[in-house]
């Protein structure tokens, strides 16, 4: 680190703890009220936590509940902090770490992929889409839009394959996740 402060020149203790970085998916049940998303995002930016992906939508209309799925990375101590810091927010009902539990949750993502091309590239794109079970949701003489769902890695590899075939742009939902087994959150 080039910007490291010599320990003796600051009146704050130096960063000393070095642990492995882990990637966790958290499912957060919140009251669907104004400001709740801003509070969650503000918590992450204010305390220097990472957001790799975040999705949010109302899931139980009558109970006025929304579910936020956050993919984050940090040391085990930081992940535990994130969970407790989230639980501390008044509008948050429950936080479940879907990566930590004995039965890890299922994660899916949806992407729309626009590919432009003619001739051989076009055929190749369609062939690969078929292999990935991506659906064509818009087609023109010069372009396709594919819809693909799956784990993030699958979407990642599909996009990489489309790159040389005329990838124009991608829109992704981010990860949604749910726990396995009969129990709800």
């Amino acid at each position: 680190m080039s910007n490291a402060t010599p320990a003796s020149a600051s009146h704050y203790p130096a960063a000393t703890v070095k642990e492995k970085i882990e990637r966790h998916t958290l499912s957060v049940l919140v009251d669907n009220e104004p400001g709740v998303l801003a509070r969650v995002i503000g918590l992450f930016s204010g305390r220097g936590y990472n957001i790799d992906s975040l999705t949010v939508s109302e899931t139980e209309h009558e109970k006025h509940l929304s579910r936020i799925t956050i993919v984050t990375s940090g040391t085990p101590m930081v992940i535990e902090q994130i969970r407790h810091q989230l639980e501390r927010l008044v509008q948050i009902r429950r936080v479940v770490d879907l990566t930590d539990s004995a039965m890890p949750g299922i994660e899916r993502e949806l992407a729309m992929v626009k590919v432009r091309g003619k001739g051989e590239n076009r055929v190749e794109a369609l062939r690969l889409a078929d292999a990935f079970r991506a659906r064509v949701i818009d087609a023109g003489t010069e372009s396709f839009i594919f819809e693909i769902t799956g784990a993030s890695e699958k979407i990642e590899s599909f996009i990489n394959l489309m790159l040389p075939l005329g990838l124009v742009e991608v829109s992704r939902t981010g990860v949604v996740a749910i726990s396995r087994g009969p129990e709800g959150m």
Binding site: P13, T16, Q85
Partner: peptide, 24 residues
């Protein structure tokens, strides 16, 4: 002070009403 030299030989009990204070 310096975290890695803070009370190095002790076992620690932490009582707090705020769960996020524990192991922070």
């Amino acid at each position: 002070g310096r975290i890695d030299a803070f009370s190095p030989g002790s076992r620690k009990i932490h009582v707090d009403i705020d769960a996020s204070s524990i192991n922070k």
